[in-house]
């Protein structure tokens, strides 16, 4: 295959300028969390949705709100509660007495960036309504079907420390999220900077630096990022190692994995790796992109056994073990 890599590289460099602008602007408000902001951009660039997991107080909401302001998109935070109804999410028909007609009242889902906070607090019917909208990118209210705005990115959070009275998402539905991020605590320096910045008289304001259209047009450029066959085979090996660990000399993982990653994992790993390369202003994917994004694509797609739980092994540990075993091309 004859690839004009120079042309692709030039194009990517030109089209990815906005990435640095966003990172700089968000960095004015958010300390650290580069990992999270990058993954949010990957979600935007690949049309994927993101599942966030982290204890409260890690600036998840603030990070999304800041990003939304920087890219001039609408932002909605929906707190999922046990009494939430699908209509509260997608909207409903209400009767207008003055006209004697039903009119559509669109729900909060009609926005660009949606933070579905603690999605596991609502029953399955509300979760399903959200997941359907995520998948189809359209909502039907009464007889009318409405297309959702573009870009449309859902960030669903699950609080890992409180599980009483919750409805955890089934594995099949979690699989629909492109990435699952695990947000950790900031380090000492970062926390010191957060402390100082957030206790100032004036909190920094984010300025819009990118138009949503720039992100939408960047999506097609991301797809042009070159992926060599060696990288494709590397991705296949990683995904297959989660299914047949014995074939890759990972005998010890065999009893720990109930189900390996689905083909959706391979597809999303390719897309996410391309977007990761784009964020690095590179016109081709390297194994670094795959290894960097791999855990986020795979950790919610590898279903562990009770034996693994008993051994206190997580899907994250298994994915790391797989990535450390498969030979890098």
């Amino acid at each position: 295959m004859n690839v004009d890599i120079q042309a692709i590289n030039e194009k990517i460099k030109k089209e990815s300028v906005f990435v640095d602008k966003i990172m700089n602007e968000v960095g004015k408000v958010i300390v650290g969390q580069k990992y999270m902001i990058e993954r949010l951009l990957i979600g935007l660039l690949t049309n994927g949705h993101i599942h966030l997991e982290g204890v409260p107080g890690l600036a998840k909401t603030m990070a999304v709100r800041t990003l939304s302001a920087a890219i001039q998109t609408k932002f909605q935070r929906i707190q999922f509660t046990p009494d939430l109804l699908p209509a509260d999410l997608i909207g409903t028909l209400i009767y207008d007495q003055s006209t004697g007609k039903f009119m559509t009242k669109q729900g909060p889902i009609f926005s660009n960036l949606i933070l579905a906070d603690e999605i596991n607090r609502s029953p399955a019917k509300v979760q399903s309504a959200l997941l359907e909208a995520m998948q189809e990118r359209q909502v039907t209210i009464g007889d009318e079907t409405f297309l959702l705005d573009d870009p449309f990115l859902v960030l669903a959070t699950q609080n890992p420390i409180e599980q009483e009275g919750t409805y955890p998402l089934p594995e099949a539905q979690i699989d629909r999220f492109m990435l699952k991020l695990q947000i950790g605590y900031p380090n000492k320096e970062e926390e010191l900077e957060i402390m100082r910045r957030m206790t100032q008289k004036t909190i920094p304001v984010v300025m819009p630096v990118v138009k949503p259209q720039e992100i939408i047009s960047a999506r097609s450029v991301v797809q042009e990022v070159y992926m060599d066959e060696k990288i494709e085979r590397y991705i296949i090996d990683i995904v297959f190692a989660t299914r047949n660990p014995r074939d890759y000399g990972l005998d010890e993982l065999e009893p720990l994995i109930q189900y390996g990653a689905s083909p959706r994992a391979s597809i999303n790993l390719v897309l996410a790796a391309k977007a990761h390369a784009f964020l690095r202003h590179r016109g081709y994917v390297t194994p670094e992109d795959v290894r960097s994004i791999g855990p986020d694509v795979l950790r919610h797609r590898v279903i562990i056994t009770y034996e693994a739980e008993a051994e206190e092994k997580t899907a994250e540990d298994i994915v790391r073990q797989v990535l450390n075993k498969i030979e890098v091309p």
Binding site: V3, I5, Y226, D228, K230, Y284, P329
Partner: peptide, 9 residues
């Protein structure tokens, strides 16, 4: 080497 291996050049 990575550039040659993975960039298609």
């Amino acid at each position: 080497s990575d550039v040659v291996k993975f960039s298609g050049g």
